[in-house]
């Protein structure tokens, strides 16, 4: 079964080692990711990410400094994360010269929806629009005559 993948990329005016520290050091991670980050960056290490009063376990998968870092999350608390019960977040860092780094992130997995209930309710309540975005994201054709 194919996974759904969210991708993002950014070009950073900093050397790859600096970007690596930004994405892997817990005190840095707590500035761009979760409010509370308890993590040892070693393959197989179990940690925790807190978002306000919510949060969940994280398991580090790949640590290959300074170019690859990945972890799994959003798996059920009592289970080990594997393909099929978790989301995999993968960072790839590519140096472009000495002072510039391309950072790419993908989030993929089977259970892509880990929204809070309030969000689900909002989606359930709002039923308009969204076509353009859908087509954008899924690489489809423009559906002008269906919008009416």
């Amino acid at each position: 079964m194919a996974d759904l993948v969210i991708e993002g990329e950014v070009l950073i005016e900093a050397p790859v080692e600096v970007v690596w520290r930004t994405i892997t050091e817990p005190d840095q991670m707590s500035q761009w990711f979760a409010d509370r980050v308890e993590l040892i960056v070693e393959p197989g290490a179990h940690g925790y990410m807190g978002f306000g009063d919510q949060g969940g376990p994280v398991v580090v998968e790949t640590v290959d400094p300074p170019t690859r870092f990945s972890f799994r999350w959003n798996h059920p608390r009592e289970e080990e994360p594997v393909t099929g019960n978790s989301m995999l977040v993968e960072f790839t860092l590519t140096p472009e010269g000495n002072e510039r780094t391309r950072l790419r992130v993908t989030e993929s997995g089977h259970e892509l929806l880990a929204w809070p209930d309030a969000e689900k309710q909002r989606y359930a309540d709002e039923h308009r629009g969204g076509w353009a975005e859908y087509l954008d994201r899924l690489g489809g054709v423009v559906a002008k005559h269906l919008s009416g």
Partner: peptide
């Protein structure tokens, strides 16, 4: 529509995170 919005939200979340990483680095 629901699927599209959920995906759009996730992508936007990563865009924000990447922008913050860029700023910090």
């Amino acid at each position: 529509d629901q699927a599209a919005r959920a995906m759009g939200d996730l992508a936007a979340q990563w865009d924000r995170r990447l922008a913050t990483i860029k700023r910090l680095a």
